[in-house]
């Protein structure tokens, strides 16, 4: 039984390591800042997730697992906040993303400018 858990956790940790290295590689290879964010979010989601699930299998049903779960939830909830803030700031600063196709002005899409009801407490 312990052998199965050990093997499962080793496989998970190795898979997590693979995704972390892949994310780092993407950070180097991608052509501009927006595409690099996609590579960084591979590290934040699947890399961290698989690594921590592997650790949780090693730690068993203890307080350490609870802490790992908190840390994972922290990374999962703060990751998109930072990525969104970064993308918004880069767009606002006038950095033109390297694009193969710009579909933001397509005729059947939502209209430009503020459309629909603006919700209270929302940044424009």
């Amino acid at each position: 039984m312990t052998l199965i858990v050990d093997v499962a956790s080793f496989v998970l940790i190795l898979a997590g390591s693979f995704f972390i290295v892949a994310g780092g590689l993407g950070l180097m290879r991608m052509p501009d800042v927006f595409t690099r964010m996609h590579a960084a979010s591979v590290i934040e989601t699947l890399g961290a997730g698989l690594l921590f699930i592997g650790f949780m299998l090693q730690a068993g049903f203890t307080l350490i697992s609870a802490k790992l779960l908190f840390l994972l939830a922290l990374i999962f909830f703060t990751g998109p906040v930072v990525t969104h803030a970064l993308a918004q700031a880069a767009l606002q600063a006038g950095i033109r993303p390297y694009l193969a196709e710009d579909r933001s002005d397509r005729p059947d899409g939502p209209p430009k400018g503020s459309s629909g009801p603006r919700r209270p407490g929302e940044e424009g």
Binding site: I13, L14, G16, S17, F18, I20, V21, G23, G24, L25, L27, M28, V33, R36, M37, A40, I43, L51, L86, A89, A90, A93, I95
Partner: peptide, 28 residues
């Protein structure tokens, strides 16, 4: 093995932080 993988990714991220080219690359 996980530590080595993390160090490799970390060094790639440090290279990206040094190379830039924009400030947002460095913040990322």
């Amino acid at each position: 093995a996980a530590t080595i993988a993390l160090l490799v990714a970390l060094s790639l991220a440090v290279v990206r932080a040094l190379k830039g080219p924009t400030v947002f690359d460095r913040v990322l």
